[in-house]
Design a protein around this nucleic acid. Structure first.
Lengths: 207, 207
DNA sequence: GTAGCTTGATACTCGGCGTTACAAAGTCGG
DNA sequence: CCGACTTTGTAACGCCGAGTATCAAGCTAC
């Protein structure tokens, strides 16, 4: 079994290819060249071909890569082929935006529950789901085996929620709040920080 | 003039340090060690010290770095000290979430206008701003010198808005929609793709 | 069949980053 | 005042990822 862990760089690039492929498919394309992927990702075309050819011969010379089959192949490589249940915390503006967007669904992540504490929001429908009270989370986590939690809560309660998630066995926390979160080392915390990315982009524009 | 462009890696890390420092300051801390920054960013402490010491001696041995002055120094290095005006497009759930959040403001980005096309939203107040009609954008861009545009619009109109931004001289586009955007090479397009980042995190958890 | 793409593969180089090690400078407790 | 401890600043070394250049093989189209 060639379960050699991919390097960070390869895994990151494969994920990005996946995004481009998913969108290209939505736009009705059926095949795409490494050159075209390069234009959308900024990754060198040779690098792209090397990344892909390391796992098999997915492309057709003179044509490019078949989008549907390439998506499937990359999903296999990343071991994320199936559907993954995720839980969303916070049904405010941000939570609603996430719940009604297709960004997660397009990549095999199904939001299986939304939690909030506000009585105004609990019981309301957001997308296809009904917002449940935060107290119900422990039970849901146990029965559905939630591994990923998405935090769309205010920064001052984010750590508290994160602690509860860790206690319930969640292994990946996606943090949309601006708080810095502490978690055990076996839990992956990813904090979304648009302003930081913006600073970074701005620097390269200014110089 | 030492306008040597920083390498990609250094600029990216400095931006992340800035996020940690900003949050640490909010939590009332006044100084921080490279070790502590490392725990939040995952960057090697030696690497952090090397990044910083390349520009001057900012720390105190035995103590750490003074947070306020380090933030100022990094801002200087990144040439992003001042306040930057950005324009937000789309006043739906996502747009409102962005407008009322402090993530951009904390890093010197001031949202100076919000645009939408829906009559229901135009004229409404979001945060401190009144939503303006999208048609007004060209005029605002000319008078305020907007360089950064944030797209919180549906995917099917994102490219159209992006084209208008390019025409108005915007140089950095931050795309929250799931569409792939085409733009001239002198315009930086950054697409937020949480699902991709999630896939990436999931891969490393599964293996 | 020929011209023109595009993939697949190899060799080479360069640079970023982790690692290790250590001196210098500060804090803290007695 | 002294000694233990912490933390920065700096240098040396080596690995590995990624860009570059180059070429053969295979597919399409005319």
């Amino acid at each position: 079994m060639a379960s050699d862990r991919l390097t960070l760089g390869v895994a990151a690039r494969l994920s990005r290819y996946l995004q481009v492929l998913t969108q290209a498919r939505k736009m009705g394309k059926s095949s795409i060249s490494s050159q075209a992927i390069s234009e959308y990702t900024g990754v060198n075309p040779t690098q792209i071909r090397r990344d892909l050819s390391g796992f098999g011969k997915f492309g057709k010379r003179g044509v490019g890569y078949d989008i549907d089959s390439l998506i499937e192949q990359i999903r296999k490589i990343l071991r994320t082929s199936g559907t993954h249940n995720i839980a969303l915390f916070g049904a405010g503006n941000l939570g609603q935006a996430i719940a009604t967007s297709s960004v997660f669904g397009d990549h095999g992540f199904q939001i299986s529950a939304i939690f909030d504490v506000s009585p105004d929001r609990v019981g309301q429908k957001v997308g296809d789901l009904v917002v449940r009270h935060y107290d119900e989370f422990a039970g849901v986590a146990a029965s559905e085996g939630i591994m990923v939690g998405v935090l769309a809560v205010p920064g001052d309660v984010a750590q508290q929620v994160a602690d509860d998630l860790v206690a319930a066995g969640v292994k990946i926390i996606f943090n949309y709040s601006d708080a810095l979160l502490s978690a055990p080392s076996d839990v992956t915390v990813h904090t979304s920080s648009p302003a930081v990315e913006l600073l970074y982009a701005l620097y390269f524009y200014l110089t």
